[in-house]
């Protein structure tokens, strides 16, 4: 049997997911409601944090928007795992794996889709933040670093979620992925800078890769873009993607129905 070139298969899988999104735009809602709710409630609730010296901004929305964007991107990433989980449940994954194409394409399609979803949710959260009064001193480069950070986070979480889904073989395992997202984002600089923290959390947050990605996403809201803030975020994203993507690929190549 002649192998099919990977490009058209990848395009087909991406088109399939995007078509699903166009037919049911409501699938975006759960991934947007929580981040937008957190943006509004945390900005309102924790406004007093800006009175404390060293917070980094006098506009709470500038700080909280990065956390909201991070969550929206992460939930978009978990959308990829939802696609794989559903395909496992319906048996479609088995049929895909029997097709004469490279196995990695099966994973890459939903991952690309998660990045498309992240681009949409990032744009919507940015609009909400602007309406709430966020500033953007970072300009075009800041915007670029925000989009790159969010797309990269969607990709990394997509890899993590796909790996979990391939191991658990149950679409309900998405709840576990969401729990990991909450854990990763709560134990980071989502709400306050590292210097505000005390005890165990200060150590965990300092080395949590999510912290570096948050700095990458947030920098455009706090000031001009700096390479010193950019490269650690990119390295963290690359590290998470290689680690979780490698695990997901390994599980996929060993996958038997």
């Amino acid at each position: 049997m002649t192998a099919i070139a990977s490009g058209p298969v990848l395009g087909g899988l991406l088109r399939r997911s995007v078509l699903r999104l166009r037919r049911m735009p409501s699938v975006l809602v759960p991934a947007l409601v929580m981040p937008l709710f957190f943006l509004v409630s945390y900005s309102g609730s924790f406004d007093g944090l800006t009175n404390v010296e060293g917070y980094g901004t006098d506009n709470i929305v500038n700080w909280m928007v990065a956390w909201s964007l991070m969550m929206a991107a992460s939930f978009s990433g978990s959308g990829a795992s939802g696609v794989i989980g559903t395909d496992i449940d319906t048996g479609f994954l088995d049929r895909l794996l029997m097709a004469p194409s490279d196995r990695w394409v099966v994973l890459a399609g939903p991952l690309l889709y998660s990045m498309v979803r992240a681009a949409i949710s990032t744009t919507l959260v940015l609009i909400a933040a602007a309406l709430l009064g966020a500033d953007f001193p970072g300009g075009v480069l800041g915007l670029l670093s925000t989009y790159v950070g969010c797309a990269g986070m969607a990709l990394a979480i997509g890899c993590l979620g796909s790996w979990v889904m391939l191991v658990m073989r149950d679409v309900q395992a998405q709840a576990l992925v969401q729990l990991m997202i909450f854990g990763g984002t709560f134990l980071s600089i989502g709400q306050v800078p590292v210097d505000f923290m005390t005890g165990w959390l200060k150590v965990v947050a300092r080395y949590n890769p999510v912290t570096f990605v948050l700095r990458l996403i947030r920098q455009g809201f706090l000031g001009p873009v700096a390479w010193d803030t950019t490269w650690p975020g990119l390295v963290a994203l690359a590290g998470m993607t290689v680690l979780f993507g490698g695990l997901a690929l390994r599980t996929l190549y060993r996958y038997e129905s």
Partner: peptide, 17 residues
């Protein structure tokens, strides 16, 4: 979350407060 559960109202502002 839209209450005084996590922060005192004296440090909130505007419509949220």
């Amino acid at each position: 979350f839209v209450s005084t559960a996590f922060f005192p109202p004296s440090l909130m502002k505007g419509w949220f407060r």
